[in-house]
Nucleic acid binder design. Structure first.
Lengths: 341, 341
DNA sequence: AGTGTCTTATTCAACGTTGTAAAGCAGGGC
DNA sequence: GCCCTGCTTTACAACGTTGAATAAGACACT
């Protein structure tokens, strides 16, 4: 049976000491007699006292909460990332609150403006629709760490992946199999779609390196990066008559959608068409065939992001914006290699 | 350029009114002259004032934050659920904070004890390892809504699915295809594994109804409910020599894992073995073959859970624990129906 | 004994907000 | 001219916590 609201005051009364002494015990202040400490801890236990974070935070100006703003939680890549970020934050005693932007500009703007002012100490943000100008124009000075691909200059700390190199690698792998008509699924018109742009650059680079001609008909645009878009894009590609023998999809969901369409229409993967994705989500490892993909160091991204943010929160915003690069690796699986080996 | 910390006080000074008047404007109190309101809003904008939630919460005793405690965020079912819960909460002006328990008893106990006391107003909890006794013994009286399958008596509001009926339905569907050796993947020894127990009950019920004999060798236990466990379990089943022509997996991840093993070993699905899952996660709709599954009303679960919780938060803990049932539906797809139709 | 240092505990004020009570001010009816 | 009513604004206290300053006691060294 616990009283309605138990505060330091109540514990102090029960233990026969001052409020501040109880506070000292709670905060492991050094100079407290063992005897006093014992009496206080006993009282705390008896009353089932738990510190009121709102009050503590009000006093200290920090909440211990950070936000993770991602497009959608049920995109496996972001779900995996969220798990890792939450775990990394927990190690530092931080709690994570998730905001879903849906990739919608308006909502991303809210995040940039820090509409959760005073509730969060900082934000890890994976923007889709915002331009660098939007971010540079940001008024708020709450610490922020950007994830993802865009080449931002200066506005905030940034954890990036070498998208161009990774996309080049994946495409070269396809070309290295002897495929001559390598398509790309995942182009986007939107100027803000930086991920798409970088991966496309890597793809085109690779074609040049491999001595293959670029063919516009092999570059298929998509609306979004979900399975449905991949399935649709693959259908478009097949229907276009522009024969292709390999496809690099700009993420795994697109690849899984494309795979579905291929199998549905009776194509053999990789014999007729080889397929590579990007992200290394778990689905890809259990698809049939298993999916060749670029595997970004997700734990690294999460860990470094939390680290940068925690540092920024602790140290104020003294130092200039930092950029951290994390690694990636090509995972060759059945969708390009085939079943043997 | 925003000052370090802007408070009502600063706005009040600039607008030439009292602190309380500013507060009134912020809270849309009715009796404020349009003129005053205008002056104040101008000052708010100029200073880029944002209310301090810690202070507000301290005053009001509520934070507007609810927790969602699930095993893991990158289990697609929970990721989808999380998205829906966050969306539903947002409609009510609530913010969601996610706790990952990993299904570990110790961590679930922390959630039950409300280790985030004073930070959250309530919790939506999907426990795996806790027994009803654990929950009944809970000291804390923070509002809580339980999700999932267990038949809890009384401790808290509860949103449930009719697991037994759903499992029965799925199994009967398999039997209805003429399959005589219907296996089950997903049994668990642990007494606390109530989901497993209920789905097993439904499975056994269905066998009886269909006039099929139960065969222990067709019931495969798993450690966890991930793809890897399903793949492993399917391998065990195949290796055991206990021929089966259909498998009901207790969730979609298990089914996708099992599917992988079947295809890897050259079995045709559904011709050799028909396969059904549970949860209707998106992966299943893009697997080849697409996965027949039980589709729970996830939006319903999320919506009702938030509704119950919000109600409980508003109304205090007056009323007795409520139980809400949500529907489900059998989605017949290629893994049982085949490609035609 | 006097001075200084260290430990232990306390008092006070402040963080930013809002509920309560009350004050100031207008207009209407007598 | 006075009182009542209703609108608008205000002063004050309190939510639970902790940093700063301080008091009280113990002990050691001169």
């Amino acid at each position: 049976m616990d009283r309605a609201r138990v505060g330091l005051k109540d514990v102090a009364r029960l233990a026969g000491v001052s409020v501040k002494t109880v506070s000292n015990v709670v905060n492991d202040y050094v100079h407290v007699t063992p005897a006093t400490r014992a009496r206080v801890t006993a009282a705390i236990k008896e009353l089932n006292y738990r510190p009121n974070l709102s009050a503590r935070n009000l006093r200290q100006g920090r909440t211990g909460i950070i936000a993770l703003a991602v497009p959608e939680l049920d995109i496996p890549y972001f779900a995996e990332l969220a798990r890792l970020v939450i775990a990394a934050a927990e190690e530092r005693g931080l709690t994570v609150l998730i905001d879903q932007t849906g990739g919608v500009r308006e909502r991303e703007q809210l995040v940039a403006e820090n509409f959760r002012a005073h509730l969060i100490d900082g934000v890890i943000f994976s923007p889709l629709a915002l331009t660098p100008e939007d971010l540079a124009a940001r008024m708020d000075d709450t610490p922020m760490v950007l994830l993802g691909e865009r080449v931002y200059e200066g506005p905030a700390d940034h954890v990036v992946l070498d998208n161009v190199a990774a996309a080049r690698e994946a495409t070269l792998h396809l070309a290295g199999l002897g495929r001559r008509r390598v398509a790309a699924i995942g182009a986007q018109d939107d100027v803000a779609a930086e991920t798409s742009r970088l991966r496309l650059t890597g793809y085109l680079d690779a074609l040049t390196t491999a001595g293959l001609p670029a063919d516009d008909r092999l570059i298929v645009p998509v609306e979004d990066y979900h399975r449905a878009d991949g399935a649709q894009a693959m259908a478009t590609l097949l229907d276009s008559g522009a024969a292709s023998d390999a496809v690099f999809c700009f993420n795994d969901l697109l690849a899984l959608g494309a795979l579905r369409t291929l199998l549905e229409r009776g194509f053999a993967v990789p014999d007729d068409v080889a397929l590579a994705g990007f992200d290394d989500i778990e689905d890809g490892r259990y698809a049939t065939p298993t999916l060749t993909t670029i595997s970004p160091d997700k734990a690294g991204i999460a860990g470094r992001a939390v680290e940068l943010l925690a540092d920024r929160i602790a140290g104020g915003s003294k130092v200039a914006a930092r950029e951290v690069r994390v690694g990636h690796q090509l995972e060759v699986r059945e969708s390009t290699r085939g079943r043997h080996a």
